Computed example of a mutant assay.
Amino acid sequence: MKLALFDDRRLGAVTADGIVDVTEALPWPHDADPLTAGWWRRLCRDFDAVRPGLEEAAARGTARPAEGVRLLAPALNPSKIVACASNYAAHVEEMHGVQERTLGGVESWMMNFDVFLKAPSSMSGPREDIVLPPAEVEAGHEIHHESELVVVVGKGGKDIPEREALAHVFGYTIGLDITVRSTGDRSRRKSYDTFSPVGPWITTSDEASDPGGFQIDLVVNGDDHRQHVTTKEMITPVPAVVSYASRMMTLLPGDLIFTGAPPGVGPIRHGDVLDTRISGIGEMRVSVV
């Protein structure tokens, strides 16, 4: 299935005709408050049990055009956003030049795969603007886009074996990891409000099948095709990412994992329009202000 959050944080099934509201098919109360979001975490954790009811409601319901609803980020108040660094070899290579230009030298430790945390408050929706921090703009720091496959955690867990990792995944969505290129900790430079747009919806893991089979593309202003890669090119594939992250921290239902930037990252400026798409998921368009 493909599942969206829309309007007053209703749950929608994405069909060929649009969005079907399937909220009433949930076997527990729907609480629209994003700060509690218990129903959402239960959905991520217990999707296999409720899927038949959601599929039946989607088949019976009336679809609304996706353009006629207010699509929201397909996640509610995750306990954390985990992000991967240096997970595509070609991106690691290009970062040598980026760091020479923006830092005056290469930070060698940043060229190794690892994970870090982004603030959950940096999350925004698929139709919200990316807001450039005035102080960073005034300082002349470059601010870059990084279009990535995002894992939505299902059952969660600690010390998850790699061979079992995909059983702990609820689904996948698109994310933009917006980044200030300056000195300092990654978490600070990537955690400004609106620096984690996600959407437009989730493709659940049963439909997605192989997370190594996605193609990622990002186009700026309609004709500047900057990123084009398949997820099979990851240095550390999705099962290993989930397993590795769970060794450091307990993954909880609804947590997000940004799986790393493909090559082709570049600066964004006021007025830019970013079109990012991942095969099998969808696409989203966000503006920069």
Results as ranks from 00 to 15, higher is better:
31 D>L: 06
182 S>Y: 01
90 A>N: 02
73 A>R: 04
273 V>L: 10
22 V>P: 14
155 K>H: 08
103 L>A: 11
260 G>K: 05
129 D>V: 06
168 H>P: 02
263 P>G: 02
250 T>H: 05
186 R>L: 13
128 E>A: 13
269 R>P: 11
199 G>F: 00
207 E>W: 00
165 A>C: 11
213 G>E: 12
103 L>P: 09
229 V>K: 05
249 M>L: 15
31 D>Y: 08
249 M>C: 08
2 K>V: 02
46 D>I: 07
113 F>A: 11
177 D>T: 06
99 Q>P: 11
264 G>C: 02
150 V>M: 03
27 P>A: 10
1 M>I: 10
151 V>L: 13
119 A>W: 04
224 D>H: 03
28 W>P: 07
181 R>Y: 11
82 V>S: 12
50 V>K: 08
177 D>G: 05
269 R>C: 05
17 D>P: 01
48 D>C: 05
128 E>G: 05
257 I>G: 03
129 D>M: 14
41 R>A: 10
218 L>E: 05
229 V>W: 04
228 H>D: 07
6 F>Q: 06
64 R>Y: 07
204 T>D: 15
48 D>G: 12
95 M>H: 07
136 E>P: 03
235 I>S: 02
167 A>D: 14
98 V>Y: 09
6 F>I: 09
249 M>S: 13
26 L>Q: 08
29 P>H: 15
115 V>F: 14
227 Q>S: 10
287 S>D: 13
97 G>P: 05
13 A>C: 12
75 A>V: 09
130 I>Y: 13
53 G>I: 07
129 D>R: 15
60 R>E: 07
182 S>A: 14
188 R>T: 06
177 D>K: 06
142 E>D: 12
270 H>S: 15
138 E>C: 03
83 A>R: 07
208 A>H: 12
205 S>H: 15
288 V>W: 13
183 T>W: 10
125 G>Q: 02
198 V>G: 01
45 R>L: 09
36 T>L: 09
135 A>I: 05
255 D>P: 00
251 L>E: 15
106 V>K: 12
78 P>K: 06
272 D>V: 09
272 D>K: 08
150 V>F: 00
181 R>D: 14
156 G>R: 01
232 K>V: 10
7 D>C: 12
164 E>W: 10
250 T>W: 03
255 D>S: 02
91 H>Q: 02
99 Q>F: 07
164 E>Q: 15
22 V>G: 09
283 E>F: 05
26 L>G: 15
56 E>G: 06
129 D>F: 14
26 L>C: 13
214 F>P: 01
97 G>C: 00
18 G>N: 04
190 K>L: 04
5 L>E: 00
86 S>P: 01
121 S>H: 02
94 E>S: 00
241 V>W: 09
44 C>E: 01
56 E>M: 14
206 D>F: 11
189 R>D: 00
143 I>M: 10
256 L>D: 05
